[in-house]
């Protein structure tokens, strides 16, 4: 394939050379996934074979096969599926609620600049405060049920989305609003037809951050209290010195986070289809 293209370009000329170079570079690009896979295989093999070789005890670093055995046992005896779904559903529910609240507050403050000015120092303070540290407080308030971890997740997701939406509302081009006003457009229409679409790239960026934070929120909520969820399994496994259980729970938490992040990027690609991609150039005609 690459050879054909080189043959078509004028031989010996500098552009031909640079094109050949470009092709070698592209060939490298297709090799990247393969290299990534190789790295993964090497790391997994090292995990399986190196710990016994160096005499690392199983409760420090278990072998890969121990994770598998432990996983099967958790599935059979410890109701792993229930824990998994409890965590996944709370992460998703918290993400959705936190996003909705964050977006609503973001738009509301964007529409009411005087309120935003009054509240901005507190928003900043809350944004900086480590939200997960509130989790023990929520247990005191709500007890040992699903609420503390849900509220922690909502709180963690809320801020990046609020801040991102608010940022878009702040930098909104006033001329666009004037244009709509000149067309006699109502305030409600200006909001839905200009402000909301204009803020979409920011909202999607906030959702991406929120999707990864949701898993952290739910995990911390489960770590500090409760009897279900992967976070609970981590703390339980720690108490039993059952290191493979801790590892398995971490892996499953990561899977939940990756799936949520992936769903957001799929939605983002659909919503922001009108943005030029880096590879695409405007067509001149």
């Amino acid at each position: 394939m690459s050879r054909q293209v080189i043959a078509h370009s004028p031989s010996g000329s500098p552009p031909g050379n640079s094109r050949a170079w470009l092709h070698r570079f592209r060939g490298l690009a297709t090799a990247t996934p393969l290299a990534s896979l190789a790295v993964a295989a090497a790391a997994l093999a090292a995990w399986q074979f190196l710990p016994p070789l160096f005499g690392v005890p199983k409760y420090i670093i278990p072998q890969l096969s121990d994770l598998w055995t432990e996983g099967v046992q958790m599935w059979q005896d410890d109701n792993l599926l229930l824990h998994f779904f409890s965590t996944a559903s709370m992460a998703i529910l918290g993400f959705i609620l936190g996003s909705l609240l964050g977006a609503v507050f973001g738009y509301a403050l964007g529409l009411l600049p005087s309120w935003e000015k009054v509240l901005s120092p507190y928003i900043l303070a809350l944004q900086i405060a480590p939200k997960v540290a509130f989790a023990p407080l929520f247990i005191l308030w709500f007890g040992y049920n699903f609420l503390p971890k849900l509220v922690t997740t909502v709180l963690v997701v809320f801020f990046p989305i609020l801040v991102n939406v608010l940022q878009a509302m702040r930098v909104l081009d006033r001329d666009l609003i004037n244009l709509a006003r000149a067309y006699n457009m109502s305030k409600a229409k200006i909001f839905w037809k200009i402000m909301v679409p204009y803020s979409m790239p920011n909202l999607m960026a906030g959702l991406r951050i929120g999707a990864t934070l949701a898993v952290i929120g739910v995990t911390v909520g489960e770590l500090v209290g409760g009897e279900t969820g992967l976070g609970y399994l981590i703390s339980f496994g720690q108490g039993q010195a059952d290191t493979p259980m801790v590892f398995d729970a971490i892996i499953l938490l990561t899977v939940i986070g990756i799936v949520m992040y992936w769903v957001v990027t799929v939605i983002e690609a659909r919503v922001l289809h009108y943005l030029p991609r880096a590879t695409e150039r405007p067509q001149s005609a």
Partner: peptide
């Protein structure tokens, strides 16, 4: 500025 809406 043409002020076209990029999402339309």
């Amino acid at each position: 500025k043409d002020m076209l809406l990029p999402w339309r």
